[in-house]
């Protein structure tokens, strides 16, 4: 079972996303801000990270940069999530190291497609 780390500050969004992903057959762990996200990426070693970009304490762009800078976590694929459907959000997300990007509100089938694509690309450990 693939393990997904959700970094999301909004409680309802986090709850919905983790429950729906759990129902789709993933093991889900979560973090509420960027710093915790970086820490959990190291301690939990998830197969994929869903990273909200507007986060307190440390924003998603910075957290992604740090995750991608560490040798242990650099290979974990990250999908950036943003409520602003703005193109510069996506550009900035990719510049920070995100492997893919999606907008909120989440359309589950589309997000699942992106998750599967990234997981399949990565040889399972």
């Amino acid at each position: 079972m693939s393990k997904i780390l959700i970094v999301e500050d909004n409680e309802m969004n986090r709850d919905m996303l983790s429950r729906r992903l759990a129902r789709s057959g993933y093991e889900v762990v979560s973090a509420v801000h960027g710093e915790e996200g970086v820490a959990k990426a190291e301690s939990e070693v998830p197969d994929l990270i869903l990273m909200d970009l507007s986060l307190p304490v440390m924003d998603g762009w910075e957290a992604t940069r740090r995750i991608k800078a560490k040798r242990d976590t650099a290979s974990i694929p990250v999908i950036g999530l943003s409520a602003h459907a703005m193109k510069d959000d996506e550009t900035r997300a990719r510049q920070s190291g995100c492997d893919d990007f999606d907008t909120k509100p989440v359309e589950l089938p589309r997000l699942l497609g992106k998750i599967e694509a990234l997981l399949n690309r990565r040889p399972s450990l």
């Binding site: 969004n13 919905m16 729906r20 409520a83 909120k104 509100p105 989440v106």
Partner: peptide
Amino acid sequence: LRTPLNAIIGYSEM
């Protein structure tokens, strides 16, 4: 307004 609305849509979808 969008934040609570996301929750309404998301939970009703679930």
